[in-house]
Lab assay of single mutants.
Amino acid sequence: MAEQVALSRTQVCGILREELFQGDAFHQSDTHIFIIMGASGDLAKKKIYPTIWWLFRDGLLPENTFIVGYARSRLTVADIRKQSEPFFKATPEEKLKLEDFFARNSYVAGQYDDAASYQRLNSHMNALHLGSQANRLFYLALPPTVYEAVTKNIHESCMSQIGWNRIIVEKPFGRDLQSSDRLSNHISSLFREDQIYRIDHYLGKEMVQNLMVLRFANRIFGPIWNRDNIACVILTFKEPFGTEGRGGYFDEFGIIRDVMQNHLLQMLCLVAMEKPASTNSDDVRDEKVKVLKCISEVQANNVVLGQYVGNPDGEGEATKGYLDDPTVPRGSTTATFAAVVLYVENERWDGVPFILRCGKALNERKAEVRLQFHDVAGDIFHQQCKRNELVIRVQPNEAVYTKMMTKKPGMFFNPEESELDLTYGNRYKNVKLPDAYERLILDVFCGSQMHFVRSDELREAWRIFTPLLHQIELEKPKPIPYIYGSRGPTEADELMKRVGFQYEGTYKWVNP
């Protein structure tokens, strides 16, 4: 592979701008107003304001973009700056750019259920340069409990009458099928589907988006991507930290609602779906819905739930269990780990287990898709061969690698495990991989909904998990304890083995 010439960040961002501006969906010269509902909250200060700053800094926003914060707290732009700027990672050389960014910011205080507050917000936006005809993007960085009041008031008082209007809704989209349907029906009564952007930030990850290209742009994968060759698929999300004093919020939802029903299920769809007619948003989402419709409700015998306990040999936070978090209700049975087996009941995947695993306070930070292939028929190497695996590593250190057998150097035919490896950090030294939120917010500006969740996708996802969630809430089974920093409950490994996964433990990928 030829040595790549190092590029400056300015040059890299210039390439990104060229890609972005050559499309006809990006209205570079139009006025846009980006409204952050819930501007005083954690999500706004840690993710949304920093993301908008990065896009502005790199010249990736339309030229005439204004940012308006809205929340109940009586704040000023200076207050917003004070709480969000520490997350910007701005350099001293960017000081003038930073001043320009905050000059485009404003803030309006108001209630979430008060019509007069929204009329005041609308008047404020109209007073901005060309504000009355601007395109408006409303980001709901809010708890779902206020979605209905907020969307109703936005629709009645704050819509642009000339430009387009788009609304970005953060997960969780309800707690179960019934609450999700209620919320979807409410929002759909106010906005068209092409105006609604239900954001799952995992769909903005580079390697998640790469799944489609790997599958449908490489001839070698087509013939082997089926039940005849693939023994099982494992989708993993692991965090090495616990709730760390923020367990009160987590306890309301648990690990299945927080990660599995959305992030992991979306990745499953991209692995299992048929080739779409095109890369058009609805063509892709149509195929994802077909996959979900082929999955039956989760069966309790295919589920393992766990909850982390303190590690007596650990240090600091590792010595504390979930129930030691003062914000967690006493005696909570909320799971911090889950392993679930699903089956896609169609011709391509009949009988292939899709194993979804996620948890907190585990032994490493990792998100990946792992396809394990069947054993080689007619073994001539005296059971020395391990199964081939194709691994798409989402985070950290984005990579695609194939675990395969090669001859060990020497005189004899002794096979050993090795890999074919594409590590993004080595291959793409001159490429700026956008943060997931950067990519998705740019998608909203461009009107691309491919990486957002459609209402029928959402409904099918909740259909699969709601009976299990209701059973857990009714019966309150005690989750299996696992030690902070471990791989999780051993019962999860036993479940995976029972459905056909072979864990060798003899080879570990190392970032080159």
Rank of each mutant, 00 (worst) to 15 (best):
S189L: 09
L137Q: 03
S180P: 07
F102N: 01
R72A: 06
I199H: 08
S184G: 07
H124A: 10
S73W: 04
I80P: 00
P172M: 05
G247S: 10
A44I: 02
H129I: 10
R182D: 11
A141P: 01
Y70E: 00
N185F: 07
F253T: 13
L75R: 06
L61Q: 00
N226R: 08
L214G: 02
L140I: 06
R182M: 07
Q195A: 04
S40K: 04
E244Q: 12
N185E: 11
V150M: 08
G163Y: 01
C13H: 08
L43E: 08
Q161M: 07
A141S: 10
F237I: 11
T236Q: 03
R246F: 14
I199R: 09
D176V: 05
Q209V: 04
L137F: 09
S132Y: 10
I196M: 02
T145L: 15
Y197I: 01
D100A: 12
H186K: 09
N126E: 14
L55Y: 06
A44H: 00
T10A: 14
K46G: 03
I48V: 12
D194R: 08
I52G: 00
R136H: 08
Q111G: 05
I234A: 13
D200Q: 14
P144F: 13
K97R: 08
A39R: 01
H32L: 13
D58H: 06
G174W: 09
S180E: 05
F101C: 00
G247N: 11
Q161V: 13
W54K: 09
E93V: 08
Y118T: 02
G222D: 14
I80H: 02
D194T: 07
P223H: 13
D181K: 05
E170L: 03
I230V: 10
D42F: 09
M212V: 04
I187S: 06
Y49I: 05
G41N: 12
C232R: 15
R182W: 10
L137E: 02
G38Q: 00
G204F: 15
F34C: 13
T91Y: 08
D114S: 08
P144Y: 10
L96G: 08
F87D: 03
L20G: 03
R166F: 00
S157A: 12
D100F: 14
G163T: 00
A231H: 10
R81D: 01
C158M: 05
S184E: 05
T151C: 06
K46Y: 10
V150H: 00
E63Y: 15
S179F: 06
N105Q: 06
A231T: 10
V233R: 01
G59L: 02
I33W: 04
K152G: 06
K47Q: 13
E252A: 09
M37C: 15
R257M: 07
S160L: 02
I167K: 00
I255E: 13
I80S: 02
D228K: 12
D79P: 00
F88E: 01
N185Q: 07
N218G: 00
S123M: 08
A2D: 15
R257T: 14
V146Y: 05
L190Y: 12
I256A: 02
R57Y: 02
N126I: 06
A127W: 07
S179L: 06
F216E: 10
G41V: 02
D24P: 13
P240W: 05
S188M: 11
Y249H: 14
F26M: 09
I187W: 03
V68S: 01
S84W: 03
Q209R: 10
F87L: 06
A71H: 06
R192L: 15
A39H: 00
E239K: 03
R74H: 05
E63R: 13
F173A: 09
D58W: 07
N64C: 06
R257K: 14
A149W: 12
I196K: 00
I52K: 00
Q119W: 09
L20K: 08
E193L: 02
L60G: 05
I162W: 09
H201V: 05
A134W: 01
S179V: 06
Q178N: 11
Q28V: 14
S188E: 12
T10G: 15
I15P: 05
V12W: 11
G245S: 09
E85I: 08
D114R: 09
V77D: 04
A44R: 00
F237D: 04
K152C: 12
D200P: 10
V233M: 05
L7V: 05
N210H: 14
L121P: 00
V233T: 01
H201T: 12
P172G: 08
E206Q: 04
N122V: 09
D79T: 05
P50E: 00
M125S: 03
D42T: 14
I230N: 01
L211Q: 02
N218R: 00
N64G: 07
F241A: 15
S189V: 07
V208P: 15
N210V: 04
M212R: 01
L43I: 09
A217W: 02
E170R: 10
D228L: 08
Y118G: 01
Y249I: 15
G222Q: 06
Q195K: 03
E244R: 15
V68Y: 02
I220C: 06
A90D: 02
A25E: 12
T76F: 04
R57P: 00
Y107K: 01
W164E: 04
F101K: 00
E244K: 09
R72W: 04
M125A: 08
T76M: 07
S29T: 14
A2M: 13
P172I: 08
L61F: 07
H201R: 09
S180K: 04
M159F: 11
S40C: 07
E18V: 03
I168K: 01
F87Q: 03
T236I: 02
G174P: 03
S184D: 07
I196D: 00
M37Y: 05
R57E: 02
Q22D: 05
E85Y: 06
S8P: 03
R215W: 01
A217H: 04
L7M: 07
E93T: 10
S106M: 08
R74V: 09
M37F: 12
I36G: 01
K89D: 11
Q28E: 06
L211E: 00
L128W: 08
L75K: 10
N153K: 13
Q11A: 11
H32A: 10
F241W: 10
R215V: 01
S73E: 02
T10F: 08
L16K: 05
Q111E: 08
G41Y: 04
Y49C: 00
I220M: 14
K45R: 14
S188A: 11
A71M: 02
I167H: 00
T51K: 08
S117N: 11
R74F: 10
T151W: 05
T243V: 14
R246E: 15
A134G: 12
F221C: 14
E170S: 09
R136C: 09
L235K: 01
H201I: 03
I48Q: 01
E85C: 06
G222C: 09
D181V: 14
L60Q: 03
T151L: 06
R198W: 02
Q4I: 05
G38I: 00
L177W: 10
L128K: 09
A231P: 00
V169Y: 05
S73P: 08
I255T: 13
F34E: 01
A78S: 10
N122S: 10
I33T: 06
S179Y: 04
K152T: 09
P223L: 02
H129F: 09
W164K: 06
D24L: 10
N126A: 10
N229D: 05
S84N: 10
F34Q: 02
G14K: 15
D100Q: 15
I35S: 06
